[in-house]
Design a protein around this nucleic acid. Sequence first.
DNA 1: TTATATGCAAACCCTTTGCAATTCC
DNA 2: GGAATTGCAAAGGGTTTGCATATAA
Lengths: 147, 147
Amino acid sequence: MGRSAEVGTDWQGRLRSRGYRLTPQRQLVLEAVGALGHGTPEEIASAVQERSAAVSVSTVYRTLELLEQIELVRHTHLGHGAPTWSLADDHEHVHLKCRDCGGVEEVDPAVFAPTVRALQEARGFTVDVGHFAVFGRCRECTAALGG
Amino acid sequence: MGRSAEVGTDWQGRLRSRGYRLTPQRQLVLEAVGALGHGTPEEIASAVQERSAAVSVSTVYRTLELLEQIELVRHTHLGHGAPTWSLADDHEHVHLKCRDCGGVEEVDPAVFAPTVRALQEARGFTVDVGHFAVFGRCRECTAALGG
DNA sequence: TTATATGCAAACCCTTTGCAATTCC
DNA sequence: GGAATTGCAAAGGGTTTGCATATAA
C-alpha cells in the first residue's frame, strides 16, 4: 500500500497516437494510480480530488477503462469489493487472499510458470496470472485452526 | 451448463446437527443448485420460484450462504457479474475465462498441482483453486489476433 | 470549429438489512 | 411457546448511462 511508481513517459504519445485527447483529468488519474501503487476507483477519485476538486467519479471510471485499453494501467479482482488498479508497467505480482482473515499477500508470478505452460500447451490458453487473486488459507489462519 | 448432479443424502443431518431448521426453502435451493449445475443467485431464485412461487431472493442469498458454511455448496467468481454456485461435492474444476470473447472453459484442477505445492511450501498458503476464475486469452481469440 | 471529453444526476445490478409475520421443533 | 426463518421493502455498494456543457485540437 502506498508504494509509489513512476508513470512512464510515453503516455501522452499513447493517447495521441490513437486519437485520444490529453486532458488534465487523464493525467491526474494516471498520476494518482502511480502514487497509490494500488487503489480502488473510489480511492483513486479521492486522490485526484485532492489536487483538483471537481473531477467526477464517472470520469475516473471512464478514464481507467481507457487507460487500460491502451495498456497504461491494469486491474485485479481481490474479492467481493471494488477491484484494485495499478500501473501496467509496475512490477507484476500475484495476490494471495486468505478466506479467513481476508489478508492479501503478494507472490512472484514465476510460481505459476509450470501451470501457465501446461495451459498453453493443453488448451492454447494464455494465462494472465495477475487478474484474479488466488484464494485459500494463509499460514497463520491454518495454524489457528489447530490442525 | 444445465449439467445436473445429485444432492447428497446427508444434507438434512448436516443442517439438524448444527441446530439449523429444515425448511422447504432450503431444500428447494439445494435441489435447484444441483439441477442447474452452475447458477447465479438470480438463476437459482428463478428455478426455485418455478416450483414454489413466492420464495424471496433474500432467502436464496441467505440460504446459499448457510449451505456454503456447512459445505454443501460453493461459489466461484467468474468476473464482473454475479458469482456462480454449485454443489460442493460436484466434480471440482477450474474456470478459464477469456478476456476477449468472455467465454468460460473448464479444466482439471490437477494442472495447478505444482503451483499449489509450491505455495504450500514457500508460504504455508493452502490454495483453493476453484474460487476465482483464471483469466487470459483462449486459443480462438489468440488466433483471431492474427499471430 | 467541432468532435471528444466531462460533470451531474439518475439508473443499474447485485447484495444486504430491518422488521414484522410466520413456521419449525 | 419461542427461537429460528421468512418475505418484503428499503437501503447499500459499486458501476454505468443519458444528456447538456465545456474544451482540446
